[in-house]
Design a protein around this nucleic acid. Structure first.
Lengths: 142, 142
DNA sequence: TTTAGTGTACTATTGTGATAGTACACTCAT
DNA sequence: ATGAGTGTACTATCACAATAGTACACTAAA
């Protein structure tokens, strides 16, 4: 498996998220053909039926387009992909805030945590790949 | 239900976490008796069998103590509870870093996110409830 | 002793995720 | 036309979470 699975959540949901994240990271480009159901099943080490379900649901969401007999393709709409980045970022941030808030932490614990975050993200590459207008606030989703 | 359930994860796991978080927040004190299996089932709006499983697993972990015919009680060991706070905090932080990192965000997006976090946590009460030695680093777990 | 309130054990049923295997319809290049 | 490679449909099976209902053993107070 190319990524770690959470045994407490359905595999097909995690693979759906993994495919979206790959598109967000540019591993899958807009319009690019995805591996076939059978190939993706081998890569993910799951049953082809599970991948079939993943593709069916992603198609339902409009994230991929399936052409019978030809294959499945990432949407051509790059804004659709960027929207996923925004959603993932906003969801992760809000969940983190909720998780931390409900722990009733001390100020010191919060400060330790925030400084670790700064350190973790200071390794950003420094090149802002956004166009300016294309940069969305991950928190507000605007 | 007193809290929101994630439909993609087993209920019994989420209730286990909820009980631990209540202890961390002081809603349940060390040694305090928990509601009976049947009462907790009513409060959580789930089947008593589900709560029975929750108590069984929490007993297995040493987080609660069950005395047959008497009831179930939060552990007397307050350091056991504090350890949960540390674990939840560390897990939430690491997951957040992983979630954000794999989105390949721009510097601006990361800055927006961090400033939202600062704003969210600036509302801390200012009183450091730790004793000094009792303050654990949520990130390293030491 | 009786009774109410504990946790616990048990069977049965339902729904869903995941697997295994087979088969079919479509597309495209040969 | 043939055949390889697509997605898709179908049945069957298994595991697990969750529910429903019943029953039992223990504890403590009336």
């Amino acid at each position: 498996m190319a990524f770690l699975l959470d045994p407490t959540r359905p595999i097909y949901l995690q693979i759906m998220e993994e495919i979206k994240k790959r598109a967000v990271r540019g591993l899958y480009r807009p319009g690019e053909q995805l591996p076939s159901v059978r190939d993706m099943a081998k890569e993910m080490e799951v049953n082809p039926n599970t991948i079939a379900r993943v593709y069916r649901e992603l198609e339902q969401e409009g994230f991929i387009e399936t052409r019978r007999g030809r294959g499945s393709f990432i949407t051509e709409d790059s804004s659709r992909i960027e929207a996923e980045r925004t959603k993932f970022g906003r969801d992760a941030t809000q969940r983190f805030i909720r998780d931390i808030t409900e722990l009733d932490m001390t100020d010191k614990q919060i400060q330790d945590m925030l400084s670790l975050l700064k350190r973790s993200f200071s390794g950003a590459d420094g090149k802002d790949k956004s166009t300016g207008e294309g940069t969305h606030n991950v928190c507000t989703g605007e």
